[in-house]
């Protein structure tokens, strides 16, 4: 019965072993980057599967979503042992992301989204600039207990969102107080709309919502977002799975690769100096902003897609 259920919704395996190995290697990279940055890695997997290997977009997205769940659940020992992942904050923000994703999916039925691509691009550039600008501020706040100095708002107090973690690169326990919960909730909602409408994972926006708007240290935001992306991906992947769009020969190497990559990535993340992490995050946001701007302008007929 269970075996029948497993097979019933899967498209059979048909790709060569060499192609599967290539998928696996791409997925290792996606899992590694995803776990260090707190994103699912779909922005790496989907373009490679479609543009390089010619996998149809729906099947690429379906396989990518399974890979995102694998990234989300893999290599968690460090994040959970040192309590970097804030489960309550993840659940709080997940309520807005999933609502936003549902709205985004509905909006995608009535508008091509070109305008939204441009808005998201602008917001990504804002995130890139803010992350670069706040590198020294974050380091100072970690060293001088600045993350503890904020005043929690009512929602933060009610839900018990504040916490602490051990920062390996700084060799100290960092306490933080969560504030700005409404702003963070709304930004996460915005990330969810992007996820549902444009297929953008929204992980990097959620990380920034926590780090820039809610006073969460970047490493907490990354670990928490990593936990969240699996739940978000599950809402879409279950539909794809039951619809029979998940191709076993694509999803299996992708999921196995992201698992390996994420295990390696999580071992590295907390050892990294926050300044390098923020610089890399800023570069990622700028790159995603550029990709979205190109896509938006292409949909408007202003630019050609590379």
């Amino acid at each position: 019965m269970a075996a029948a259920l497993c097979l019933q919704h899967l498209v059979s395996m048909a790709l060569s072993g060499l192609d599967q190995l290539k998928f696996l290697l791409v997925a290792v990279l996606a899992g590694f980057v995803g776990s260090i940055m707190g994103i699912g890695g779909g922005s790496i997997i989907v373009p490679v599967l479609t543009n390089v290997f010619g996998v149809p977009i729906r099947e690429a997205v379906a396989a990518s979503l399974v890979g995102v769940i694998a990234t989300s659940i893999s290599g968690l020992s460090t994040y959970f042992r040192e309590e970097i992942t804030n489960i309550r904050m993840a659940l709080f923000l997940e309520t807005s992301t999933t609502l936003g994703a549902m709205l985004g999916a509905l909006l995608s039925l009535v508008t091509p989204g070109s305008f939204l691509y441009v808005i998201f691009a602008a917001f990504s550039f804002y995130i890139a600039a803010s992350q670069a600008y706040s590198i020294r501020v974050e380091e100072r706040k970690i060293r001088k207990s600045g993350f503890r100095a904020a005043r929690p708002d009512r929602i933060s107090l009610l839900l018990g969102l504040s916490g602490r973690y051990f920062d390996e690169s700084e060799g100290r326990r960092v306490e933080y107080v969560i504030s700005g919960t409404l702003a963070g909730w709304l930004v996460s909602f915005f990330a969810g709309v992007g996820s549902g409408m444009l297929g953008i994972g929204g992980g990097f926006i959620k990380v920034s919502a926590m780090n820039l708007f809610m006073n969460a240290p970047l490493k907490v935001a990354i670990a928490t977002s990593k936990f969240m992306v699996g739940i978000t991906a599950a809402t879409s992947s279950v539909v794809y799975y039951l619809r029979g769009v998940v191709r076993a020969d694509v999803a299996a190497p992708v999921a196995l690769g992201t698992t390996l990559g994420a295990i390696a990535g999580t071992k590295v993340m907390n050892k990294l100096r926050v300044r390098w992490l923020k610089a890399a995050f800023s570069a990622l946001a700028a790159y995603l902003g550029y990709v979205m701007l190109r896509r938006g302008l292409w949909l408007m007929g202003v630019a050609e897609l590379p």
């Binding site: 899967l10 399974v66 769940i69 599950a234």
Partner: peptide, 26 residues
Amino acid sequence: MALDALEPGAGGRLVGAGILALVATP
């Protein structure tokens, strides 16, 4: 995947169970 490499189609059920396990985890 290993079974499938040895004999095409032989590993389908295991892969299916692996993907189902991932989707069910959240």
